[in-house]
Simulated scan of single mutants.
Amino acid sequence: MSTVTVSAFIEARDAHLWRLLTDLPARADWLSAVGAVEVLTAGGFAPGTTWRETPAQPDGGAAPEEFEVVEAVAPRRLVLGSRGSGVDYRITWTLRTVERRRRGCTEVTVEQQAVPTGPYGRVLALILGGLAARAVEGALRRDLADLAVAAGPSRSAEAA
């Protein structure tokens, strides 16, 4: 199993960040790596909710990914699952309010665990482990930066 964890302080209240993270149709508006989102289940956002994200890559090189909500404890913890080719992923978002200046601030930690599910996944983990971890870290940092921009001062003030 491989685990990558990154954190950032975002000048926004946890409830506002939670709304951004759980508004599935809007994900493509603020996540630069996502080109489109297709919600696959009916009803509100809760454990069992599934959706497909199509990457925002002009060459179409990456395949769409499906995600499922495994756990949702508003506005503190969101756990997502995704099955890959030979690897299952678990992405955990944790939001913790911190006091900074006059405005609300939230420490956001995102952790991705990759669990090989077959021989192909185990071989890839051995061969590409460090390289893959660095790529995942970069992607998670980009997602946190995108979240910070989406929650920008004017937007988070409106949501407060």
Rank of each mutant, 00 (worst) to 15 (best):
Ala157Glu: 11
Glu66Tyr: 03
Arg76Gly: 13
Arg142Ser: 13
Ala15Lys: 12
Ser85Val: 07
Gly129Ile: 09
Val4Gly: 03
Gly60Phe: 04
Ala63Asp: 12
Leu17Ala: 10
Trp51Tyr: 11
Gly48Asn: 03
Ser32Phe: 00
Gly44Ile: 04
Val69Gln: 08
Gly43Trp: 04
Ala145Pro: 10
Val98Phe: 01
Arg155Leu: 02
Glu38Asn: 05
Phe45Ser: 04
Asp88Ala: 10
Thr22Gly: 01
Pro153Arg: 10
Gly48Leu: 07
Leu126Tyr: 02
Asp29Arg: 14
Ala12Leu: 08
Thr117Tyr: 09
Glu11Cys: 04
Ala157Arg: 12
Tyr89Pro: 00
Leu140Gln: 11
Arg103Lys: 07
Ala74Ile: 01
Gly104Ser: 06
Leu128Pro: 00
Gly121Phe: 09
Leu144Glu: 09
Thr50Glu: 13
Pro75Met: 05
Val79Gln: 06
Ala151Lys: 04
Ala26Ile: 01
Tyr120Ser: 09
Ala150Gln: 11
Asp59Gln: 13
Val110His: 04
Arg77Trp: 01
Glu99Val: 11
Ile91Gln: 11
Pro58Lys: 12
Arg134Tyr: 00
Ala26Asp: 15
Ala74Ser: 14
Glu66Phe: 03
Ala56Val: 04
Val4Gln: 11
Arg27Asp: 06
Ala8Cys: 06
Ala157Thr: 14
Glu38Lys: 11
Met1Arg: 05
Phe9Ala: 15
Gln57Met: 07
Glu107Ile: 12
Thr117Trp: 06
Val110Met: 05
Gly138Pro: 04
Asp59Lys: 13
Leu126His: 09
Ala150Arg: 11
Ala33Val: 13
Ser32Pro: 10
Val136Ala: 04
Val39Pro: 03
Thr3Ser: 14
Asp88Trp: 02
Gly129His: 03
Arg19Leu: 03
Pro55Gly: 12
Val6Thr: 15
Ala132Asp: 01
Pro58Thr: 14
Ala63Ser: 13
Ala139Val: 08
